[in-house]
Amino acid sequence: MSRQFNMRSLILSTGTTIILPLLLLFSLFLLLRGHDEPGGGFIGGLVAAAAIALKLFADDYPSAKSLLRVHPLQIVGVGLAIAALSSLPSLFVGDNFFTAQWWSLDIPIFGTLKLSTPLFFDIGVFLGVIGTVLTAIFTLVEVEH
């Protein structure tokens, strides 16, 4: 184990188990409400990445890595793909490239769900940011191993 992680704090570790899900949920919340209130994919992505980084500092690298399941670079790729694909639906409707498309879905009980290409684009940004930040952090940690 590397130098900086050998002072593992029980308090931080325990706290993280509670805070981590909340932070991740909060990041989703930021992402989804971003169009109308402060938030959005970039901010949400940073929060999510910080949450995983918290896990890294509180516990150790393997547990943070297993939390993510895939390599962060793959997340970057998926994010880019989603963001780039969200530019295409406009072409099928005959609009210019990247024109935002909006659809409303009526779901019983829950009300109306507003779906749009900007939302998917924002999800792409969200994933791209998470992936990039975590690639940087994980890579630097891996060097220690």
Binding site: G34, H35, D36, E37, S87, A100, F121, G124, V125, V129
Partner: peptide
């Protein structure tokens, strides 16, 4: 369709720029 102007700029008005940035 968004009240958060910053976000609307990022993901709609200037989406191509943002795509370049990511």
């Amino acid at each position: 369709y968004g009240r958060n102007i910053v976000n609307v700029i990022l993901v709609d008005f200037r989406a191509l720029d943002t795509l370049g940035e990511i």
